[in-house]
Amino acid sequence: MLTTQTKEYPLPADLQAKIDLVLESHDNDPTQIVGILLDVQDLHERHYVPEPTAYYLADRLSIPVTNVFDCLNFYSELSSRPRAKYPIQVCSSPACRVNRIDTERLLSTLQDLLDIKIGEITYDGRFTLERTTCYGACDRAPAVRINGHVYDHLDSTEKIEALLRSLQ
């Protein structure tokens, strides 16, 4: 039943091979779906799980595709829509936000330099700005999180500029 669905969503052979490697590293275990989706979305330059990939995963793991989409929608670290090459996550929880001057400068500098607002994507698809809840780097504010990596102590415009320049 699922197989017929997949056939309508062919994947390039090289992507398929990469996804198979991810599945392998999670022992092809359907209960590891969240970890699998996290890894698979990073295979895509814009860090999301496109529909054909979701169908492919459902088929390979023998789970309903609704299960895959339920996870994609439920978990905030997963996305079924294109994000950016570098999604910049800014924490919106209290411990970071009460460091007002730093946090406000961080946000306004990022918005100015990238010429986008929270939730928007730069024209070239390189950056988005996302607000997230606490990611456990409260002692490293002002910080941003990009593709799982925390860049901390961004307490001057120069440091923020240098960070953006380093992300090509």
Partner: peptide
């Protein structure tokens, strides 16, 4: 080892 997905 299991991974969460960013849900408190």
């Amino acid at each position: 080892l299991y991974s969460g997905g960013g849900a408190y």
